[in-house]
Structures are given as structure tokens and as C-alpha cells.
């Protein structure tokens, strides 16, 4: 029940896009059609679900103050958290590369469908943001961290697919010339954020 609540909260209440405006660059770039949005969204779910638990282990067994105690008592005072940014980035980038290779080897069809999106994810700030939130929230177990990653990914997926569908629809509208494209996407994101405020404050 607690995990379910965490999942719903991370997907809807603390939605990466509408609550924190994370991962905006790829969100704006690939939301022109639903098909590409689904591709990137799926990739983000996958990568978030894998990187956050790995970063969780890193945080708890290497970086945090006293995390290195398993090496020996003399490391108990060691605090490496100033390294967390660069470590997280390195983990994310390497895992994305690894995932790319694995997917290419075992499922060429999926690899073809995801195309350029997989490597793009390495620089998606939602992934980094997820890792940093994980650090801040101090989850008790790795299970919580995994569910949090999955939920955040699903939230990002929903957001990008929703705006892609709307952008496909408003292609036939008489949007004023200066606002066409990205301008409209920003306004839409704001309006959708207004609607998504309905989830804010859910007590589950």
C-alpha cells in the first residue's frame, strides 16, 4: 500500500514535467507526434527505473557520510557527497550506453523504434533530477527507490504523450504565427500544469 501510494504520488502529484518542469528539452523536442513521444517516454521509464536504484546503492554504500563503513572503521567519517553530481551523471551515462548495447543486441526491433532517443536520454534532466530527488528523499529500501523511479518515469511518459496528442490536434488550428511550435508548447504546458494542480495535495 505504501509503495502504491509512492508510485501514484511520483507519477501524478510530483509529476516531473508539470510540478518540477524537468526534462523540458526533450519533452519539447520530441512531442510533435504521439509515436515519437511514446518511444522516448518508454525509454525514459526504462532508464529511470534502472538508474535510480543503481544510484541509490551508490549513494548508500559509497557517497553518504559513513557509507564507507563496510570498508573498515577508519572510513566512518568519510563524506563523499560532494562527488554525487559527477558520480550520478557518470552512472546515468554509462547505464544508458549499456542499455543501448543490450537492446541493440537482443531486440533490434525495439532498438530501431527508439532510435536516437536512447542516447538522448543521457542528457535528459528528468533522469538526473530523479537521482537527486532520490538522494534528498532518503528512501528506506532499494524497493522504494525503484518504485519511485518507475513512477517518475510513468509521470514523464504521460506528460509527453498528452502534449504530443494535443500538438497533433492543434496543428489544424490558426495559431498566431509567432507562437507556432515551441511557443505554443510552452503555453500548453502551463495550461496543463494548471489542470494537473488538481492532483496536488493528494493524501493516499
Amino acid at each position: 500500500m505504501e509503495l502504491l501510494s509512492l508510485f501514484i504520488r511520483s507519477a501524478f502529484v510530483d509529476n516531473m514535467i508539470f510540478a518540477f518542469f524537468f526534462g523540458m528539452c526533450s519533452y519539447l523536442a520530441v512531442s510533435k507526434t504521439v509515436k515519437t513521444a511514446v518511444g522516448l517516454g518508454a525509454a525514459v521509464i526504462f532508464v529511470l527505473t534502472v538508474t535510480i536504484p543503481v544510484n541509490y546503492l551508490l549513494e548508500n554504500y559509497v557517497l553518504k557520510q559513513g557509507a564507507l563503513t563496510w570498508l573498515g572503521d577508519e572510513f566512518a567519517d568519510m563524506d563523499l557527497s560532494f562527488l554525487s553530481f559527477i558520480m550520478f551523471i557518470a552512472v546515468i551515462a554509462s547505464i544508458v550506453q549499456l542499455v543501448e548495447m543490450i537492446v541493440e543486441k537482443f531486440s533490434p526491433a525495439l532498438y530501431g523504434a527508439l532510435g536516437i532517443f536512447l542516447p538522448l536520454i543521457a542528457v535528459n534532466c528528468a533522469i538526473m533530477g530523479g537521482a537527486l530527488f532520490m538522494q534528498e528523499k532518503q528512501f528506506p529500501t532499494i524497493g522504494h527507490a525503484t518504485i519511485y523511479g518507475l513512477g517518475s518515469g510513468v509521470g514523464w511518459f504521460i506528460a509527453v504523450v498528452l502534449i504530443a496528442a494535443i500538438r497533433e490536434k492543434i496543428r489544424y488550428s490558426h495559431v498566431p504565427a509567432p507562437l507556432r511550435g515551441v511557443g505554443m508548447a510552452f503555453i500548453l504546458t502551463g495550461l496543463m500544469g494548471l489542470a494537473f494542480l488538481g492532483f496536488m495535495g493528494f493524501e493516499l
Binding site: V34, L162, A165, K169, L191, A195, L197, G198
Partner: peptide, 16 residues
């Protein structure tokens, strides 16, 4: 109010 706005946001995706 918010439920209808959310439904509005979802409508194009449902159609799709």
C-alpha cells in the same frame, strides 16, 4: 473544475 480540465487535457490522447 479540475477534473474536467484534466479530462480536457486527456481528450486528444483518447481520440488518438
Amino acid at each position: 473544475m479540475l477534473a474536467i480540465l484534466i479530462a480536457n487535457v486527456f481528450a486528444p490522447l483518447i481520440d488518438h
